[in-house]
Amino acid sequence: MNLRFILTKLFRAFLTLVLAVTFVFVVLRMSGDPVTQMLPDDAPPSVIAQYREMWGLDRPLPEQYVHYVVGILHGDFGFSFRDDRPALDVVLERVPLTLELGLTAFGLTLILGLGAGLLAALNRGTGVDHATMAFTIFGHSMPNFFLGILLILLFAMTWRILPSSGTGTWAHLVLPAVTLGTSYAATVARFTRSSLLEVLHQPFMRTARAKGVPFRRSILGHALPNAGIPIVTVVGLRIGALVGGAVVVEPVFAWPGIGQLLVNAVAARDLAIVQAVVLLIAFTMVVVNFLVDITYGWLDPRIGVVRGEANA
């Protein structure tokens, strides 16, 4: 891996971010005049004009865009009329909770998905393999919110062993994290299995055997690092699904994170909040994708080779 590789990826990440910011601007302007939507229908034109001037909506679009971008660069994401506070403050307040839920689900996914995939690949064609693949089909097909409701029904209402909503203890975390992580774990398990199976048949695995490398060492030292590249891709790509999933899962469990905040803000037409949340999610995605790209370069030395470095 080299500096040029990292700089290229950094430039792309920056470009994506600019596009995301612009996209949010355009879409929110296209969704109608926020002033008429917010104020009562019988509001006098003078009041409407006053609000439009206050929010800069009376200026030409390019000027609004510059104002909006400069605002973002200064950390000004608009003002939440519902909370009567800067939108960024409202959003940042909720971030730790979503992070807690997201990271727990992510950790659960990695352990379950990688473990199940590894187990299935190494026991190909056996009961373990079939059971794992059956689980992944279940995980894929089950919509998040429905799984959530099902889990609440079983664990919170029938058996009464876990709370159905709220935050505070690890017990509150179990159901939402499992709900959020299941389909993700299924995807990771499938990819781990298939890419491992492919690698296990490569000639270099036979070389490792011919060299007398013990089984466990050959899996950890040779098979997994090679199988890791497609796995990292799917793990990285699906982090978006995790964030999207949070928007659906949080309301089900009354988990007060940014997902729930977004749903409420959309319902209340609190556009500044919507804008801040969407930008935050976009920013997270760009950062994650950048990290995934860097991880590739670290996992696979063949990526990011500059011409002339290969001395044949």
């Binding site: 490569q202 000639p203 270099f204 036979r206 070389t207 490792a208 055997r209 011919a210 060299k211 007398g212 490398v213 013990p214 089984f215 030292g221 040779h222 690092p225 090679n226 996992l299 696979d300 030395p301 063949r302």
Partner: peptide, 23 residues
Amino acid sequence: RQIRGRDMAMIFQDPAASLNPVQ
């Protein structure tokens, strides 16, 4: 596995594919 590599070793046909590409 204890014998292979220590008492007997094998060299394969396609050297590039027989080496681990990421090590």
